[in-house]
Nucleic acid binder design. Structure first.
Lengths: 239, 239
DNA sequence: ATCCCACGGTAACTTAGGTTAAGCGGGAAA
DNA sequence: TTTCCCGCTTAACCTAAGTTACCGTGGGAT
């Protein structure tokens, strides 16, 4: 169950069998969640974090007027709110975007684990810093890329992140978001998100139907996205 | 010299005198930097981090076409690239926006400090997570707020962050950025950044001349910004 | 002394993306 | 079966922000 998380960690780091045993012990329970559930709401006091085992979660922030921005999408293997371990409350909501399978990780166990294995503390610190890098790339998208390039970029990023955990198939992946939700990731209106999808289809870069995204021309898509995956820090690393 | 950093830490956390001594020992040297220096460039291998003692630094990312996005501004007391401690290279440049006084903090000392005081490890982890929260708020700005609201929001944020380290005066602060640099923080063109400044002036919310920003009407500015500082996590915390 | 040229400021014009509104199809509920 | 609603799509129109181009000013270089 939690193997998807270990798979992701092992992409970058050597994990010993002692460490693995420790990691396998941090989950107190697993839960199944339905789409459109508010799992964590901004400001609530946290005593555990969510490890996503299957499905899609989003971190989203709202303005008083109801405008919504998704600041990050999470896929299998991701900790959705590991930053809550130190911050103790979140500045955003965590919402399900599909059926999900999540593991609950109590902060006291995370604390015990990182006390016992300080290197794992740095590994998890690293993980929250990669989230930061994803945020920065997204700021670059929102500030400087066109709608077309921005959407292409998101699809390229998700493809790479899903590939790491073996959730891609036939050069595509399941993409459960509605166009409204996608537009909230990109800082666009639904109407313009739709126009942008049409344009990516017209250029034969992607197909998208029945919640299934297919990347028809990966080179082409990465080209319009000006995609360079180095911000994802996927190379092997010591800590 | 490094007191400004301790001041910032002590706003949120109790720091014992042993911890303080440890922190005071992490600086290997201090350096003065001129404006517009590239201090760290994306991708280079890092063995130390920069603690900003005085002046302004920016993290900036570039697109191949030359478009630039500043993903975060740093002021006195901030670690500009603490995430480099775990990431080992950056996904962005670090550039001076003014004369600066920086302390160089070798990673091996940071490692020794956090080994000796695991709680300080969590305190610094917390600090990088606050950077993440600042990034998310900025994504909300870039994706959902108007140019006017976005600029107002940035000024509100900087005011609060500078206040923590005692760098505000007469309801304003020194703001050394050119309008071009400001526009790169906000995802705007220089022309529109100028129009937006004019509009904030016209509404008597701010004044800006000779690199000095004055907040004329703080309530009003926070209103157009829809500013809520809770994402800065300024309340006292245990770890 | 003068020559830059970076910076702030404006105006005229263009455009990417927002707004409003409407149609269609499919699945859930009754 | 029918109804209803949600998600996708498209069209017409609008506007916030981008583009290009220009001017004035002041502080550094030569």
């Amino acid at each position: 169950m939690i193997s998807v998380h270990l798979k992701k960690l092992r992409r970058r780091f050597e994990i010993s069998s002692d460490e693995e045993a420790g990691i396998r012990g941090i989950v107190s329970e697993t839960r199944r969640l339905r789409p459109d559930e508010l799992v964590v709401s901004a400001g609530e006091e946290l005593t555990s974090s969510l490890l996503l085992l299957d499905g899609w979660l989003a971190r989203s922030k709202d303005l008083p007027g109801g405008e919504r921005q998704v600041t990050e999408l999470h896929v299998a293997g991701d900790f959705a709110d590991l930053h809550g371990f130190t911050l103790q409350r979140l500045d955003h909501d965590v919402v399900t975007m599909s059926d999900c399978n999540v593991a609950i990780v109590p902060h006291e166990r995370l604390r015990a684990l990182t006390d016992a294995f300080p290197r794992l503390g740095r590994v998890y610190w690293f993980a929250t810093n990669v989230d930061g890098a994803i945020h920065r790339e997204s700021a670059l998208s929102l500030g400087q890329r066109s709608a077309l390039s921005r959407m292409a970029h998101l699809f390229c990023e998700l493809y790479v992140r899903l590939e790491v955990v073996g959730r891609t198939a036939r050069s595509g992946f399941e993409f459960p978001l509605t166009q409204r939700e996608l537009s909230e990731c990109l800082g666009l209106t639904v109407v313009h998100a739709n126009r942008t999808i049409q344009e990516l289809r017209r250029r034969q870069l992607i197909e998208l139907e029945n919640r299934q995204l297919t990347i028809v021309n990966r080179r082409g898509l990465e080209g319009v996205a000006q995609f360079d995956p180095s911000y994802l820090y996927l190379e092997r690393s010591q800590l």
